[in-house]
Structures are given as C-alpha cells and as structure tokens.
Design a protein around this nucleic acid. Structure first.
Length: 378
DNA sequence: TCCTCTAACACTTTTGAATCGC
DNA sequence: AGCGATTCAAAAGTGTTAGAGG
C-alpha cells in the first residue's frame, strides 16, 4: 500500500521509489495539471454537483478539461482518467438536501478511460488542453461499451493519470503521476435531484438549450400520454428562488485511503475504432489506488506525492484521510451530517481549499503489486 | 407509500458525407 | 485533380416526466 507525503514544492524529490527510477523520471515531480474550467466546476460544486448516469451512458457535464505542463517534450505519455468513490456512503435527496442513506454498495468494476490522443509526446499534451468530453458514465454493471460504471446516489470524483509510456501495453512500467481536483466531486444520480443543478446545467450545456426557459422549445408540447406540461420544471424554478442556501448543503465529504496489492495485467483493447480510446476495468478490490487528498492553498496544480508503502488493504478510502477536514475523525454519518460539506463553502473559503492533489510514483513497476489495470472491459 | 430507475419525448448541437467553386 | 468552404441530413446528446418496479 502507500504512505503519503505532502510537498509544498514540486521540485522537492519526495518520492521514494523502491526500484531504480526510469532514466528520465527525474522530471516527473514537476508535471503540473490544471483544471481548465475550474470556475464552472466550482459553480456546480458550491451547489453540489450531480452527474446523470444512464444505462447506455451519459456524458459528464461539466466535462473534464485539463492542461499539462512540465512534461518532457519528446517523451511519450498516456493520459488516463478514472472515477474514485468519494467516501463509503450512499446518499439520498431529502427535503432539499443530501443525506447519508447508509453504507455504500460494493463498488462496481473500476474502469479507466484513456484519452483518445494517447500515446502522444509531451509537447503534444502541452500544446493544448486535454478534453475528456467523450467520457460516459453508466450504472449498468454489464456495460460492454467501456463506459465508466458508477453506483447511483454515491459520490465520486475523477482522477487523472499521466503515465510515461510508449503504448497502452507498457503503462504498467512507466513512471506516472495522479491528479485530482476537489471541486470535481459529484453525486451520481439517475435523475437530477437538486433543481439548482438542473438550472445550472441548462444554462451552460448547449445540448440542453431546448429546455431553457423562454426558449423555442415549449414544455407544454409534451404529448406522451397527453401529459400536461412539465410541472416539475415550474416547481423547480420556484424552489430555486425560495430555498435558502442552507438547504443546499451536502452531507459531509470524507476521504479514505485505499490501496491494493493484487496482480496487475494490462490488456488494452478497443471496440470503438481505435486503440487509443479504451477503458480498462478493474475489480473493486484491485483499484489502482485511492489516495488521501490534502488541503492546501493552491492554484489548481498539484503538490502531493505518494509513494508505495506497506499498508493494510482498505476497501474504501479511509475517512481519517479527509480531503475536507472535520472536527473529528468520527465516521458516523449522522455526525458527518452535522458539518457543512464542501458545497456549502463560500467562494472565498472554497478558493482557499481548492487545490488538486498530486501523487507521484517514481515508476509504476514499483507498485506492480498494486495493479493499475487488472483487466480490460472488452 | 416512498424511492429509484427507465424509456420516450422534443429539441439543439455535432458530425460527416456530399456538393460546389476556385 | 486537389483543396477548402458550404450545405444538409443523420446521429448524438440534453433534461423532463410518467410509469414501472423494488
């Protein structure tokens, strides 16, 4: 498993690879990732981001767009993304707020989405921002399309992996770093619960223009079963105007460390036309790693490093390693509810807490017993 | 009864093939 | 013939909501 070292200087060599690092891995610690649409993410995060998941897959909105610096221009990298449980709870939307509804269900197979441009040189990745627009979320555990599988009413956050490798077949041996951004945490839902989120999505998502108030599309046109115009939309808008901020509070967020030591194997495959866009599925017990996320003043780049260490396997991220600090380490949901979640933070507070976390592995081979990708989904 | 999920709906945006002009 | 710009239809994607199911 892993121990975690927090560094305030990316140039600090905090990683302790247990095997000789790759010849050119010395620069790994300087890779920086920036969330491109952080303001939009923050807007959603302040309310409590919800992501629709459907049987056939739904895109993420806001979509994940990041930029990279500090890569070696001529070295090849593979960029990957996966979704990690925020905590070990299941939630429900009750009386205009999220409440803990019990323990999380067993995690579905973990899938990793590889950016379609992968592999590409560092100069390519640094040339422009990377968009993960095509990532789709599903609640279908039998999904065959490579979509990322999530549980509804559970909280997740996306995680990005920068792996120095020439091909998907060698990612396991390449040095890599992992990044995540606190404001990208979301609750997976099959239907929107918080009307504020609905409004925000309609305002920002071009595909939802037809649902904009005053738009060309009339909700009254709905004719299935002769049903009346969308009553819910009206109610929701009313709720938007009346619900106090406190009602939008999210339950507590917590982070737990999670690591594994199972056999790894890399089996990239593609059924969507090209090899570069594939997802890798992992058994829940074989998650790449789930790291504690520390809080620092930051500009959306990453400072945290992680090195392999010997720890007991944790099926969920340990609450002790909370990304958002709480007065107590008590994991009692009821207790957790008593504390304002990240979504209730004011903008100023939020800004102070918004920083991605960064995990540096000197070489993926160092933790080959902690599989990055245990098996492919196709 | 309550909660969650699914499918159909009307609409917009995106995509890509076909066409046109230089 | 080759290239770029334009057009247009099909595909993809969106939130809403009634109804099904647990």
């Amino acid at each position: 498993m892993f121990i975690f070292i927090v560094s305030s200087d990316c140039k600090s060599n905090m990683s302790v690879p247990r095997s000789p690092p790759a010849a050119d891995s010395y620069q790994q610690g300087c890779i920086r990732m920036t969330l491109e649409n952080a303001d939009l993410w923050k807007s959603f995060h302040n309310i409590g981001t919800e992501m629709i998941i459907t049987k056939h897959g739904r895109r993420v909105f806001p979509h994940c767009s990041v930029s990279l610096t500090g890569l070696q221009p001529f070295a090849n990298y593979i960029i990957m993304m996966d979704m990690v449980p925020e905590d070990s709870f299941k939630y429900k939307w009750k009386k205009n707020q999220w409440e803990v509804a019990g323990k999380a269900e067993p995690q579905p197979p973990c899938r990793t989405y590889m950016h379609p441009d992968s592999p590409a040189t560092g100069s390519h990745w640094m040339k422009q921002s990377l968009s993960f627009l095509k990532v789709k979320l599903t609640n279908n555990t039998l999904d065959q399309h490579g979509h990322i599988i999530l549980h509804s009413m559970h909280r997740y956050f996306p995680r990005f992996h920068v792996i120095q490798a020439d091909s998907p077949y060698t990612v396991r041996w390449g040095p890599f770093q992992t990044f995540s951004f606190p404001e990208t945490t979301f609750t997976a839902v099959t239907a929107y619960q918080n009307p504020k989120i609905t409004k925000l999505k309609i305002d920002h998502n071009p595909f939802a223009k037809g649902f904009r108030e005053g738009g060309t599309h009339s909700h009254g046109k709905r004719c299935r079963n002769g049903s009346p115009p969308a009553k819910r939309a009206t109610l929701d808008r009313k709720a938007l105007c009346s619900s106090p901020p406190d009602l939008q509070r999210m339950p507590s967020t917590s982070q737990s460390a999670q690591a594994e030591k199972n056999q790894a194997s890399v089996q990239p495959s593609s059924k969507e036309g090209h090899l570069s866009a594939w997802a890798v599925e992992q058994d829940p017990s074989e998650r790449l790693h789930t790291e504690p996320l520390e809080l620092h003043e930051y500009d959306y780049s990453c400072e945290e490093q992680m090195v392999p260490a010997s720890m007991a396997y944790q099926p969920y991220r340990l609450v002790e390693y909370t990304r958002f600090p709480f007065p107590s380490n008590d994991v009692d949901p009821a207790h957790a509810l008593a504390h304002p979640p990240p979504h209730t933070l004011s903008t100023a507070e939020h800004g102070a807490q918004q920083q991605p976390t960064y995990h540096h592995h000197g070489n993926a081979a160092d933790w080959s017993q902690y599989p990055l990708f245990s098996y492919s989904c196709w």
